[in-house]
Computed example of a mutant assay.
Amino acid sequence: MNPASAPGSADLSDTSRQLELLVNSVTDYAIYMLDPHGVIRTWNRGGERIKGYQASEVIGTHFSRFYTAEEIDAGLPALNLSIAAANGRYAGEGWRLRKDGTQLRASVVIDPIFDGDQLIGYAKVTRDITERYEAEQRLQAAQHALMQAQKMEAIGKLTLGLAHDFNNLLTIVMNSLDLISTRVPDPRVQQLTDTAMRAAERGTLLTRQLLTFGRGNALVSEQLDVNALLRDSRELLNRSVGDTVAVSFDLGDGLPIVELDKNQFEAAVLNLVCNSRDAMPNGGSITISTRLCRARKPSESESPEEDFLSVEVRDTGEGIPYENQSRVFEPFFTTKEVGRGSGLGLSQVFGFAMQSGGFALLESQPGQGTSVRMLLPVENRAGK
């Protein structure tokens, strides 16, 4: 007996029937035909699974229904068909819409179908590659974060060595100035040594900031109520920004006590506020906010999330060009005019956050302001 004619079996001697069974058995791909104008003429089970539509819902409608509104306005559906007709194939990928309005990342192939020289339609094959695409994006983000961390680590080691050497030289200079000041009573010499001492003290401050970035400055941690510390700093911060900038606070409730270096924390907040002030020469607003959040360190994308205390300084200033954002935490890198900053403010913030066991993040939209967040660990909170 011919297996094809056995009771209950499909007749596979018909080529068109074989093709219909083959196409409808494929569920990993949406395989369907379009007429020359892009109207859907067939639909398979893969299309139902991937895009959520039954055949009765899509047959007779234009395939542009799967594109986003922006792509439709740009004429992308018609362009893809014209490329397929002209070149013999169109292949690409992009975001498409499911029936429920969610998006999927789709790999698309469109082949023209000719009857002799006449174009009678298109064969369209779509595969859902959302999981693969998102995995690739996560991998790229992790690789970028690792490269950034390695770069900052290398810069930190170089900075640490230079800062120690520079600090030794400053110590000699300051000791010599002290000796001159005590042994030469001439008022003119005294004035010169005072000027030189102030410059040396400024150099000492810069060195301290470099040491913080390079994590060579020992932190003196103590249990702190960050919200209380910020409230106590309100007057100082208001004086630092002047009359044209308004400073407001949005402090979360019930935040844990954390172990931090008080002086370094206050310096970091002041650096952030002063940076925001400089980004708003015509005035604006600065918001300092705190909250408890869960996050993972950028260089450890596969590690579980941890509890962090987020301290954010957000401004309404000029923003930072995208091409500069990956470098803002580097020592001596600044987008300010010459003479308006040393480029060490954000590097001190970065170094303090890293040495405290956390990290710093920057978000900025040119023309719309900048946000810098210090995420500080709370694993040492009181009572734990």
Rank of each mutant, 00 (worst) to 15 (best):
E71M: 11
S107R: 03
N80A: 12
E48F: 05
A69V: 05
G47Y: 08
V125M: 08
L79F: 11
I72H: 02
E71V: 09
K99M: 11
D100P: 03
Y67G: 06
I129D: 12
N87T: 07
K124P: 04
K99T: 11
I59Y: 01
Y67D: 13
G92Q: 09
Y67E: 12
F63Y: 03
L97I: 11
R89T: 07
L81W: 10
T68L: 12
A55V: 04
D128M: 04
E93S: 02
I50C: 08
G116T: 14
Y67I: 14
L81P: 02
A123F: 09
S56Q: 10
E131I: 08
A55H: 00
F66V: 09
T61N: 10
V125L: 08
V108F: 07
L97V: 11
G60Y: 05
A86H: 02
E93V: 05
V109E: 07
A69F: 01
R127L: 15
E93I: 02
R89Y: 07
R98W: 01
E131W: 01
A74E: 09
T102M: 07
G116M: 12
T68R: 05
I50D: 06
D100M: 08
S64T: 13
A69T: 10
N80W: 09
A86W: 01
S82I: 10
E131M: 04
F66N: 06
L76F: 03
N87L: 01
R132A: 15
L79P: 06
G75D: 11
D73Y: 09
A69G: 06
I113M: 10
Y133R: 10
E70A: 12
F66D: 09
Y122F: 12
I50Y: 01
L79E: 14
I72N: 06
Y90D: 10
G88V: 12
A91Y: 02
F66G: 06
T130A: 05
E57A: 00
R65L: 15
G94Y: 02
G46H: 11
R49G: 04
R45H: 06
E48M: 07
L97K: 02
G101P: 06
G88T: 11
G60S: 09
D111W: 00
V108P: 01
N44W: 07
G75K: 03
D73H: 11
A69D: 09
A85L: 13
S82D: 15
D128F: 03
G47H: 08
P112D: 03
P77T: 14
N87I: 03
L79N: 12
Y67Q: 08
I110E: 12
S56T: 10
E48T: 12
P112Y: 00
D111H: 00
Y133S: 11
F114D: 15
N87A: 03
P112R: 00
V109D: 07
E93C: 00
Y122R: 06
R132T: 15
